[in-house]
Amino acid sequence: MHPSPVESAESAEPTAPSDPGSRRLLLVVDAPSLLHRNHHARAHTRIKDRAGRPVWALHGMLRQILESIDQFAPDAVIFGLDDRTGSERRDFYPDYKAGRAEKDAELVEQLERAGALLDALGLATLTPPGLEADDVNASGATWAERHDWNCVIITSDRDAFAHISDHTQVLRLINGGINGSPLLNPARLHAMYGVPAANYLEYAALRGDASDNLPGVTGIGEKAAAALLLTAGSMDAVWADVDHDEGRSLVAALDALAAETGGRRTGAGVVRRLAAPGARERYDFNVRMMSGRDDLDLGLTPDVPGTPGLLPLDIDRVSRVVGFLGVEATTSLAVRVLTGDPASRSAAR
């Protein structure tokens, strides 16, 4: 089983604490997530490149990338891509993501061209064999903490919430684009779900994820999952009480919380569901499936000027590659944001 992000963070070599405002910033972009959202939002535009191929999803993704770089001014950027030729998770669980609608052929074509477009610009991409952009997100967050950087993950996938920490925030893309999307830190995540960021993976494993075809523990919904983690502190403590004391401490704690908040006493029912055959196995299975690989080599060498992932980029290269998409305003924005060209900045004013 892959180590959880929490476990990996604990096993990493400690770094001296620093002022978060003085840290450098890594931007990790979940490229497939942006492409899917932009395909559905922009298909009506029917934008095509100079070769007549559909590019509305690629163009929308690039616009959001440029807006993000302009907003956050990162020191390094890496784009995670899914391996479209194989999946370790699907090999282990053939029904992984089953039930999702079949992808539109025009979206598939743009997904397959995304890496080439980003590489042509001189940006850093990573397509981990058998893995997904989710794993690049996890590894980016771990890389940032180990190197005492800050990190912002840009995605619409809730799985990335497991990586939120004092070093990592998640810009969760929703309707409204970059400027209308929430930037989630530990406090905001806690306000949304009632669990600390370090417990989010446990919370998600209990609840399940219908979009990935991962059922949760039967009878344990979001409220019960949050209450369990609030009262016990961790699922290790929950399972220990279920295994060694028939859940008596849990029942008492859950019922005390219900009395305090004016809710219904459900402790005995929750413990009964946790002790049911298959409950622990379902939880452990979900943890395995949901855990991102946090040990990938990102190939980032931020102290070596001119290496992929660092800005600025070559102005002629940016002008040529983005210009091929055929949207003049986007080309101008790309030149300003990616190359730091003084003339383009003056023109933008």
Rank of each mutant, 00 (worst) to 15 (best):
H163R: 06
V170W: 02
R113Y: 09
G180F: 12
A197S: 14
L121H: 01
A197H: 04
K97P: 10
R172I: 07
G115R: 01
A133H: 04
C151M: 01
A138D: 04
S181M: 12
A187M: 05
D91I: 06
E112S: 07
R146W: 09
D95S: 12
V195N: 13
P182D: 00
Y203S: 15
N199Y: 08
A101N: 03
E112C: 07
D104T: 11
D91M: 14
A198G: 08
L118T: 07
L171N: 05
L123M: 12
D91F: 13
A198Y: 05
S165H: 04
V195C: 07
L111W: 09
A205G: 11
A120E: 14
N179D: 11
D134T: 10
S165E: 03
V136Y: 00
L121F: 01
D134K: 02
R90S: 12
D119Y: 08
A205E: 01
T142E: 09
G99H: 12
P196M: 12
G140D: 03
R89V: 11
G115A: 06
A197I: 10
A191H: 11
A101G: 15
A120F: 06
R146G: 15
D91W: 15
L117D: 06
S156N: 13
D95L: 06
N150F: 02
R158W: 07
H147C: 07
R100I: 09
L107K: 11
R113M: 08
T155R: 00
L117N: 04
A205T: 13
E109M: 13
A138M: 10
A187V: 13
E145R: 02
A138T: 11
G99V: 05
I178S: 00
R188V: 08
P129R: 05
D95M: 04
G140T: 08
Y193N: 07
A197L: 05
A198L: 02
I154R: 02
W143H: 10
P129W: 09
L201C: 11
H167K: 05
N137Y: 04
G122H: 03
S139L: 00
L171G: 06
G130Y: 03
D148P: 05
T155P: 03
E112W: 13
H190K: 08
I178D: 01
N150K: 14
I178G: 01
S156A: 10
W149T: 05
F161D: 00
Q110H: 09
R188L: 09
S156Q: 01
S181H: 08
Q169F: 02
L126E: 04
Q110L: 01
G130M: 10
R113H: 15
N179Y: 04
G194S: 04
N175A: 13
S165Q: 02
T168G: 01
T127E: 02
A105L: 05
V108N: 08
A98Q: 04
R146S: 08
A204C: 03
L184K: 09
A205Y: 00
R146A: 13
Y193D: 00
R90G: 03
Y193W: 12
H163G: 04
R188N: 12
L121W: 07
D91H: 08
T155A: 14
T155N: 05
S181I: 00
L131K: 04
G122Q: 11
G115F: 10
T125V: 15
A191K: 15
L184G: 00
L184T: 08
P186D: 12
P186N: 06
P94Y: 10
I174D: 09
S139D: 01
T127A: 12
